[in-house]
Amino acid sequence: MKKYVNAFRMFFGRCNLSTMVSFLAVMAGMIIMVAGLETATAGGDFTAGMTAGMSIMLAGVIPLTGLIFLNALYAYANPATPGHKYFLSIPDSAEQFRRAVIAANVFSLALGLVLSAVMCVVFTLLHIDFGMTYFGLVILFALLGMCNFTGYVRNIAVRLVVICGLFAFTGFAAGFFSAGDDEEEITLGMLYEKAPWLVFVLAGTALLLFAAGLVYSIAVSRRKWVRE
């Protein structure tokens, strides 16, 4: 365990801790603000609408948390990134990179899960719908998987296209299968009511994508890390 944390710190210094803490602090601040508003206005229509919007927005942040560390880590495999030569020159660099990939996946997942858990607890207490949080989690797993698959692609545009494509596809699929009332936002709960199989397919695919991506990345990391 220590080896993996050390490898992670080797690639991120102490940036990881400060980034993680500040990110969680901002998120916690927003959630508390939403909770405060909801309590203060005793569930008025305006605040209810705003908090619902906030919950959707915060749910969208969950998958993005997965990209923070992984994207930064895979960037070091690109010769154009400052720091590339330093990391390549350290002893046992390929093994350190492999460990850092595993640690970055775990940290990214943990960050997303912690954020989701906080949102679920707070929103449950305030009776705010948090169905989108689950959606965010599903996308988080899928994004981590895609990031692992495309991590060694040197053209960042390719990775961004894949990630944007994934977002677009998920949104399209959700919209297509839960369509009926145009004025309501789509939640995983709604989708589950209308097409439960699709929810399982989406969640299963996301998990599979994550597992396959991680296995692939670990398997090829040594070969891809070392410049030919």
Partner: peptide
């Protein structure tokens, strides 16, 4: 040589 986000402290840790 070092990542752009690194400070002297990050370099020391790494």
């Amino acid at each position: 040589f070092f990542p752009q986000g690194f400070t002297a402290k990050d370099i020391a840790i790494s």
